[in-house]
Write a protein that binds this DNA or RNA. Structure first.
Lengths: 234, 234
DNA sequence: AAACAGTTAATTACACACAATTAACTATAT
DNA sequence: ATATAGTTAATTGTGTGTAATTAACTGTTT
């Protein structure tokens, strides 16, 4: 008898050739970051297992990893639920991320090769084009590529790992702030400033540009969260 | 028939009232950080299960968390092994940690209350006394307390979580650098400088003191790793 | 009517079993 | 003698079963 896959809230990407636990891990993480699984929602093993067509074991192991990433919280003997999103926790994340982003552009100024700088320039151009499309998904993707090149340019694997994780936490809010039209033009300018700072290996300028970039993101996200709060408060 | 518990390399602390997976997680983490489990050593599920008297399930879940923490690496279809310790990876960790320690001291300057500052002063005094004992374990503990007070003073939970994790990575090297006798007097001075910087809410001075502190640690650890390399190279 | 106790349903925590894959060892052929 | 193929042992990956604990609901008593 065919399982009719009741709802495809959580789609299993079978294209990947990974252990099931990692497939589940990626699927659940994505569902949380994009908001398909909402804060406070319980993650029940049998239910998720039926939905994704796997047994409870890979589900449990995936939840262990989400637990350490801070995306779910464990209630003893009740299981996992999606961690909440508050202004405070977002500010905490951004406070750390700002510091590590500053570190990464400093290191990038010192260490990026000419070919890496060239790739960064191209990524900057692509981001400018992406902004013109007005499509939030395209913009988000181009933004990620731009920042990934910088972080990779530091040559510090641990920094890459941590910043990827922190950036992901922010993605939970990003789908929101990228719709802030008035920010689009500014975003292009900010990226330009970061690029030129690194290009000229001018740490002071590059750091300042990154600081402004993150600060603006923070303000934009806070504005949207507050607005969201008004909408959902009864 | 009684299992005679072949070797107690990994002792299960049954005092704690935690899920078995967390007991296992803590036990394995401690074993890795203190060097009882050596880099490259394989973590085999049945073997560990027999040793600790639990089934494979809690072992597996603990390994998932160690995996995300970076203490073990997964080899597909071969299982987990203890992650290596190289000068490069240690420098990567310290590069990040330096940046976050600077951040935490800056935030502490702004946010620590008078009572917290008082507790920091006491912790500083205790550290000075600990140094006089010459006992590495006592010193390490006092050092942790001192730094924990500063990090707690930032009020940033995410920062606390990350710095705890990074500090733990360094503990793998710490058992080594704390035996560096000539550093002991300097350590006291360095802590004093950090304390006074925060006490006077003087960010510039506090940050400079922390930078020096971390840089010295890094040099000390590198010296010892290089020395270790000579010893074990045949 | 409200509160408390008892019972039931649901869910995790843990253990165990089986299948699949890898690695090592042996035997045979060139 | 060496290389290759076949076989076996060992270990992970995944699925399932069982006990224990929690939460909710119902019935009874004050």
């Amino acid at each position: 008898m065919e399982e009719p896959l009741k709802d495809d809230l959580i789609r299993v990407e079978l294209s990947e050739f990974l252990p099931l636990r990692d497939v589940v891990f990626n699927a659940l993480r994505k569902a949380i970051l994009t908001g398909r699984l909402k804060p406070g929602e319980r993650l029940m093993e049998v239910h998720l297992g039926e939905q994704m067509g796997v047994s409870r074991t890979p589900i449990r192991e995936a939840i262990r990893k989400l637990e350490l990433e801070g995306l779910v919280v464990m209630v003893p003997r009740r299981g996992a639920e999606v961690a909440g999103m508050t202004v405070k926790s977002m500010q905490d994340v951004l406070e750390v991320r700002r510091s590590l982003d500053v570190l990464s552009v400093e290191l990038a100024c010192d260490r990026m090769s000419e070919t890496e700088l060239e790739r960064l320039r191209e990524a900057g151009n692509k981001f400018t084009q992406a902004i013109k499309t007005g499509n939030a998904a395209v913009m988000a993707e181009a933004d990620v590529v731009f920042h990934d090149i910088i972080v990779a340019g530091t040559g510090n694997l641990r920094l890459q790992q941590l910043l990827n994780n922190l950036a992901e936490q922010i993605y939970r809010y990003r789908f929101v702030y990228l719709q802030d039209d008035i920010r689009h033009e500014l975003l292009v300018d900010e990226h330009e400033a970061v690029y030129h700072g690194i290009r000229n290996r001018n740490k002071i300028a590059a750091v300042e540009a990154v600081r402004i970039h993150i600060d603006n993101q923070e303000q934009s996200i806070i504005r949207h969260i507050e607005a969201e709060k008004f909408r959902t408060e009864e």
